[in-house]
Design a protein around this nucleic acid. Sequence first.
RNA 1: GGCGCGGUAGCCAAGUGGUAAGGCCGAGGUCUGCAAAACCUCUAUGCGUCGGUUCGAUUCCGACCCGCGCCUCCA
Length: 454
Amino acid sequence: MPIRLFDSLSRQVRELSAAQPDGVFRFYNCGPTVYAPAHIGNFRTFVINDVLRRMLELEMGPGKVRHVRNITDVDDRTIGQSRKEQRPLGEITRMWTGIFHADCDALNCLRPTAEPTATGYIREQVSMIEVLMEKGNAYRAADGSVYFRVGSFPGYGALSRVKERELKVTNSAFDADHKDDVGDFALWKAHKPDEDGDVRWPGPAGAAEGRPGWHIECSAMSRKILGDTIDLHTGGVDLLFPHHENEIAQSECCNGVTLARHWYHTEHLLVDGTTMSKSKGNYYTLGDLVAKGHSPVTVRYALLAGHPRKQLNFTLDSLHAAESALATLRAYRAALRRLKPASTGVYDKVLDALRDDLNTPAALGALFTVVNRGADGGNLADFERVIFALGLDLDRPAGLPATPPEVAILAEKRWAARGARDFAAADALRSELAAAGWSMLDGKDGYKLEPIKK
RNA sequence: GGCGCGGUAGCCAAGUGGUAAGGCCGAGGUCUGCAAAACCUCUAUGCGUCGGUUCGAUUCCGACCCGCGCCUCCA
């Protein structure tokens, strides 16, 4: 059964396939801008794309998937952050790239096969802009910037249906720039000393020194690493317009062929029913959630609990649900390990759900339907395969914070009291531990301490 | 204003023209000094409202109500 996925351009669910004779699937996923920690909404997209990557590998073989995810390391926000902190741009972006990687690893996302940076591909971007200028799709503005002339590309708007909408244009952006038409967008931005500091590169022939516009990096890197036509291009819904629309325009005008055979966009994560924003106090990073005592696997599970093409309302409560569900899966696996494998194919519906437009909630539902039948009908190898596809690392320690010494002392005292069958003292100590925010789980040969979740 | 998405049990969330997966919570039970864990059982005559099509609609069509997102550098 092939993998079927909704295609944002044709607006229907279509089979995924590799077009090139080498059978390699070429997959480009728009990555993060590295100027601050990514938030869990960003990670919804990366986690979903990771499940997709895993499914593709299971289906086509690990060597048959080329997965590119870029790092945007030069744009208004990265430069802004660098100036705010009075530190070199590269230092800022390197730091946040490192943190992004750590978060991805914690969430058990496989590393992409290539992770190009915008600053690493300036030459490719410049030469692409030069081609567009030669072909008449781009023009130099008065200040030395280069803009893409949207009117020169008849296909503009096919992805986002931008032609059918009336742009609610304030004209502020238009007035501030030097472009011929409001719809035109920057390919190259002339250097502005008061805003850009020392961030600048030699521009395309005939243009000023400066830096690339946002959209061109993906076009250039995708082309350089994967070729003129790729099999799949993905990102969050917010990238549909203008980012992906503009990428199509640039790439197709430059290369003369279709940019991507398939487009896929994940919907937004909402928190407490609305968009995340720092002012609303509902803005979470992975680190925020870990600090509240939740493990990254739990977060990953919660991010998989909703259909990727539907807005998912994330709440702290959903993490508690996820944690309980994961505990059941861990117990089930432990039971499977003690049993002889039974029939194979019992989890097929889980993978089928994932093949069917990446329906992660249906997959989880199908998983638990099997789990609820009991471990003695299960098959460990098959179960592990399904867990791999979902990327749920059931072994990963919960990342518990270190036990404070005073808590450890209380626990030791209680364990001793319990051993001496002084249950009154043991219960009193349990209360003290609870007051300190810790719960003590008695086992046969020892105990475990866990912070009580906030 | 334009474009798009959604409203399913206390919460989260799949799904189908033929009578509602699953998770959490809750209740009961087994086990256990207590607690927890684990395991077992139970929990929507109902799928925003009103019409229509149909033998039959939560699922198709229409209207309406409500919520959310995007509309130029936000995954």
